[in-house]
Design a protein around this nucleic acid. Structure first.
Length: 290
DNA sequence: AGTGTCGCCTGAATGC
DNA sequence: TGCATTCAGGCGACAC
């Protein structure tokens, strides 16, 4: 599922259940996800109290009062389901980890494709972990603006669409929001990242922030797997301008899609890219005619 | 160093 | 109905 908005929605659902609550037990129903579950995972968590939850890029972080913490990545199909105190829980297919809370609540990590992962971190040094050390700025934080993006992209020969998926450039942006943000900023996905102008970088950072914030407001995007911690779908997929809309008209377009073919789909670095060839031209020709 | 390709794994949708 | 193929929100190990 999960790009920044979906991960943030899951974190928000998780926070009231975890924070200030004691983990009384951890059930491991398999020994690995994409990577092995640390052998001392259970031991590090059990009887510790959660002091804070956080998010960095597409990772959820949970910090404990024993100085440790853990990071959780949902991969493509990871879900977290919360069972409130008293609610009956029966194990379902692909349930891999269960966290039992002192309140009686249970938190279940389910992941059909097992591309997700969990690992332990130290509360004080987690940012030095390899997953986070080279990670780019948080797009919704104050260290992300046009100038910073411009510097990050300098000299890059990859197309801008591929560069946006690189978590070292900006954290948390995935395939959906990269497509949507490029559409909103009217930048061609095939334009080489290093060729973007400062003005384009300004537009792009603003568009990334805007798209991510809107998606969070709508509860994220549900294509196939994504659910929040209550099992509900997100709504942002109804607001896509281009993503998964091949052949359809993009918002505000009055061109004849029988002639233009509508939204186009191409493959870049093995991933689908959706864009409007009229509004997102490699050179600024848009606006000359209407 | 930076970039593109492949593989990890399952399930849903599509094609024959 | 059934079987094979294709594709999917991510990421890291490789080869070049």
């Amino acid at each position: 599922m999960p790009e920044l908005p979906e991960v943030e929605i899951v974190r928000r659902g998780l926070d009231p259940v975890l924070t200030d609550n004691v983990i009384t037990g951890v059930d491991l129903w398999r020994s690995n996800l994409r990577t092995p579950i640390p052998k001392n995972f259970k031991k590090a968590l059990e009887s510790a109290k959660v002091v804070q939850t956080a998010r960095r890029g597409k990772y959820i972080l949970v910090f404990l009062d024993n100085g440790q913490g853990f990071a959780l990545h949902l991969g493509m199909s990871g879900r977290i389901m919360i069972h409130e105190p008293g609610a009956e829980y029966t194990r379902e297919k692909h349930d891999h980890i269960g966290f039992r809370m002192k309140s009686g609540a249970q938190v279940i990590f389910n992941d059909a494709r097992r591309f997700g992962m969990v690992f332990l971190v130290e509360r004080d040094t987690w940012e030095k972990e390899s997953a986070f050390a080279a990670m780019g700025p948080e797009p919704l934080g104050n260290k992300f603006n046009g100038e910073i993006l411009f510097k990050k992209l300098k000299g890059k020969k990859a197309p801008i669409k591929a560069a946006l998926l690189d978590q070292r450039v900006v954290a948390g942006v995935g395939n959906i929001y990269a497509c949507e943000a490029l559409f909103e900023s009217r930048i061609s996905p095939t334009k080489l990242a290093g060729k973007l102008t400062k003005d384009e970088c300004e537009r792009l950072t603003a568009a990334i922030r805007n798209v991510l914030n809107k998606a969070i407001k709508e509860g994220g995007s549900s294509l196939r797997d994504y659910r929040n911690t209550k099992g509900d779908l997100g709504y942002f997929q109804h607001h896509f301008s281009v993503y998964d809309r091949e052949g359809k008209q993009c918002p505000g377009c009055n061109c004849n899609i029988l002639k233009t073919g509508g939204v186009r789909r191409i493959v870049q670095a093995g991933r689908s890219t959706f864009y409007c060839s009229k509004k997102q031209q490699p050179e600024q020709k848009q606006g000359k005619r209407k």
